[in-house]
């Protein structure tokens, strides 16, 4: 059903479409960032596509990729009852770096097309640090203004916290152990993710069982 949409986009934008995938009627279109807004507008306005409903916008961090972030826009047609997923790949914005047209780091906001995208784009900014050009109010949505960094980036350490309220220091606090120790509860380990390291694999983290206990005593 949604295959029609993919064909329409391909016919309209041709080389701007990087790739398309289809899995059991689940259609995805990857486009170049420069064409992202036009494709989104086309999907909404074209009568055959008629993507009248904005579902979600989110992002994925692939630290090993050169274009690190993948922006994912989910759309739905209320009248034709079909869905499509529009993706685009963005680079990390380095501080102080001159804007490079071959390494796009931002896309235009789609909140002008679907008003519901407003807060979702704020959430993407909050969690991943991706900016949207022309967004009416690009502030953090869930976290507080004092928060530094973007926690859903893979290079944000899993155990890093930034308390808004200073912790108390009484005997009932200092004598307590943390709810989790070491690598407990975290299958990927509490280590900093090494970005863009092709040699990374699950095996290279090692088994926490093999490590000696932190206090040096052997188990009984």
């Amino acid at each position: 059903m949604s295959a029609v949409v993919v064909e329409r986009v391909k016919a309209q934008f041709g080389s701007k479409v990087v790739e398309t995938t289809s899995f059991r009627g689940d259609e995805s279109i990857v486009v170049e960032p420069a064409a992202y807004y036009q494709v989104a507008k086309f999907l909404r306005d074209d009568p055959a596509c008629d993507m009248s409903m904005f579902i979600d916008i989110t992002a994925v961090d692939y630290p090993s990729r050169d274009a690190r972030f993948e922006l994912v826009l989910n759309l739905y047609s209320l009248h034709k009852a079909h869905r499509v997923r529009l993706k685009t790949r963005l680079f990390e914005a380095e501080q102080g770096e001159v804007a490079d047209a071959t390494r796009p780091t931002t896309v235009p906001t789609v909140s002008t097309l679907w008003a519901g995208a407003n807060w979702f784009e704020r959430e993407v900014w909050d969690m991943f640090g991706l900016k949207f050009e022309g967004h009416p109010d690009l502030r953090r949505l869930l976290l507080y203004e004092e928060f530094e960094g973007h926690p859903l980036r893979k290079d944000y350490s899993a155990d890093k916290t930034q308390p808004l309220m200073p912790y108390r220091s009484g005997p009932d606090v200092l004598g307590k152990q943390r709810p989790f120790l070491g690598d407990e509860g975290m299958p990927f380990g509490r280590k900093d993710w090494a970005p863009r390291d092709a040699s990374w694999s699950d095996d290279s983290l090692g088994d926490p069982e093999d490590a000696p206990p932190p206090d040096g005593t052997a188990p009984v």
Binding site: L142, P151, K160, T161, P163, M165, Y167, D172, V173, G185
Partner: peptide, 21 residues
């Protein structure tokens, strides 16, 4: 009591970090 399995950037690891319990 302890933050539970929300062992992450967003959650206070137990309200005793803020107020006595």
């Amino acid at each position: 009591s302890s933050g539970g399995f929300y062992d992450n950037y967003a959650t206070t690891p137990g309200i005793d970090k803020i107020i006595p319990v």
